[in-house]
């Protein structure tokens, strides 16, 4: 079996994003965690690109790395959290509790792995779906869900707007 350039990129980027995600969720300092998260997102974007979805890959970079992480960083700065180091909250000697989610997650992976290995042979179908195909799908077939997606954002906006506003008479809370 020969490995193509795509395979190499996929496995490399995939491994990279797994490592950086692991780092992201285990850091104690939120800023480092976010930096790792950005790395992981870039890795995933590369994977998505390799999988033949260039539009989604660019969105991944723009929205996740650009917007989501920046928003996170803003909040961390506003809360002045960088110095706060909250750990996993498990006291020494009671790490048994950590084993529970570990076992749980491993068993989920195993279950789905069993499912994956089911009856599927190795398929090598490979489709590149460019931005124009996605755009057509979005704006023709899925026009109603797209409009509803705007409602979803509106709901979030209204809530965030109301909550973030300073209380007029009660002062800051």
């Amino acid at each position: 079996m020969t490995y193509s350039m795509f395979d190499v990129v996929f496995y490399g980027a995939g491994a990279f994003s797994v490592v950086t995600t692991t780092l992201a969720i285990t850091r104690t300092n939120p800023v480092y965690a976010l930096l790792n998260f950005v790395m992981s997102i870039l890795g995933i974007a590369l994977v998505i690109f390799v999988l033949g979805a260039p539009f989604a890959a660019s969105l991944e970079v723009i929205v996740y790395a650009g917007a989501v992480v920046v928003l996170f960083l803003f909040v961390v700065m506003m809360l002045n959290l960088a110095h706060l180091k909250t750990d996993f909250g498990v006291k020494r000697g009671r790490s048994v509790r950590l084993a529970v989610p570990g076992v749980l997650v491993i068993s989920i992976i195993i279950e789905i792995g069993i499912a994956f290995s089911g009856r599927f042979g190795k398929e090598t179908t490979y489709h590149i779906i460019g931005p124009s195909a996605v755009g057509r799908q979005l704006l023709v077939a899925d026009i109603i869900p797209i409009e509803l997606g705007s409602m979803l954002l509106l709901a979030a906006l209204l809530g965030a707007f109301h909550l973030a506003r300073l209380s007029p008479e009660r002062g800051r809370q």
Binding site: V100, P101, L104, S107, I108, E111
Partner: peptide, 11 residues
């Protein structure tokens, strides 16, 4: 955690 356990059970 309980939610995750419940999901496990269902799966």
């Amino acid at each position: 955690g309980m939610l995750a356990l419940g999901s496990m059970a269902v799966i």
